[in-house]
Simulated scan of single mutants.
Amino acid sequence: MTTPLPFFSSRRLYAFILLCCVGLLSYALYTQYYDGLHPCPLCITQRAFFAMMAACALVAFILHPHQRGRYIAGGLMLACSIGGGAVAYRQVWLQSLPPELVPACGPSLEYMFSNLPFGEAFQTLMMGDGNCAEIVWTLWGLSMPNWSMIGFIGLGLAAIASALPMVKR
């Protein structure tokens, strides 16, 4: 039998994940609308993964599930974290390419989803383009996708912790 950790509860972890996601999304919107940084397709995709993770955390916080539900909630949040982390890694990789190897800029997101079949638009979106390789913001030498990847890793660990049997309900 496992002993619950005294401070941690699944509900506190769900609230932590929700607040982190809301904070990260709020800062992304702040940089877009007040600093004038226009998000590329990969940035928008990362935002979508943060929003999905926040929605899972909110539902889990409200429903306060028992162990099986905690496994499901933790698994869904971990899946969002892995998906978002993969997209962030792709963008970090694009940013590390020499300028001559950066892919050409592609069509806008609106054009892709209105004129291309969904599968092709999604594939084009995931490939990224020249806009995604541009570094326009840094903090302590790390670009926004680097920080996003760090956020996905931390939130993924919190999602795993929320499902552990030793964390009290």
Rank of each mutant, 00 (worst) to 15 (best):
L139A: 10
L97D: 00
P6W: 08
Y27V: 04
R169D: 08
S108R: 05
R90Q: 03
Y33S: 13
F61N: 06
G36S: 12
H64Q: 15
P98S: 06
Y27G: 11
F122K: 13
L157R: 06
Q95K: 11
I135D: 04
C43Y: 00
H66S: 15
L63Q: 13
L94F: 03
I82G: 02
K168H: 11
A79Y: 01
V167A: 09
A121T: 01
V59G: 11
Q95E: 10
W137V: 12
W93H: 13
L18C: 09
F8N: 02
L76F: 10
E100I: 02
G84W: 01
V22G: 13
P4S: 09
L78H: 01
A133N: 06
T124E: 14
S162E: 06
P41S: 11
D35Y: 09
S96H: 14
S143D: 03
S108T: 12
E120H: 08
P165Q: 05
V102D: 08
T138I: 06
S26N: 11
Y27I: 02
R11L: 12
F49Y: 05
G106A: 13
A55E: 02
A161N: 00
N115F: 12
G151M: 11
M127V: 06
L101C: 10
F50L: 07
V167N: 07
F49Q: 04
F8R: 07
G141T: 07
A55H: 02
G141N: 09
G151W: 03
L24W: 02
S96C: 08
L101T: 00
G130N: 09
T3G: 11
L42F: 02
M1V: 14
V59N: 11
I150H: 03
A121N: 05
E110H: 07
W93L: 14
P4D: 01
S162T: 00
Q123I: 13
R12L: 15
A86V: 05
Y89M: 15
Q91L: 09
G75K: 05
L25F: 03
T124M: 15
R11E: 12
G36C: 07
Q95S: 05
T124R: 15
Y111G: 08
L25H: 01
W137N: 08
S10D: 07
R169C: 09
A48G: 10
A15V: 10
M77E: 02
P107A: 15
V87S: 06
L155W: 00
W137I: 10
F50R: 03
L37W: 09
R47H: 08
H38V: 15
L63A: 14
C40E: 09
T3I: 15
A161S: 09
L94C: 05
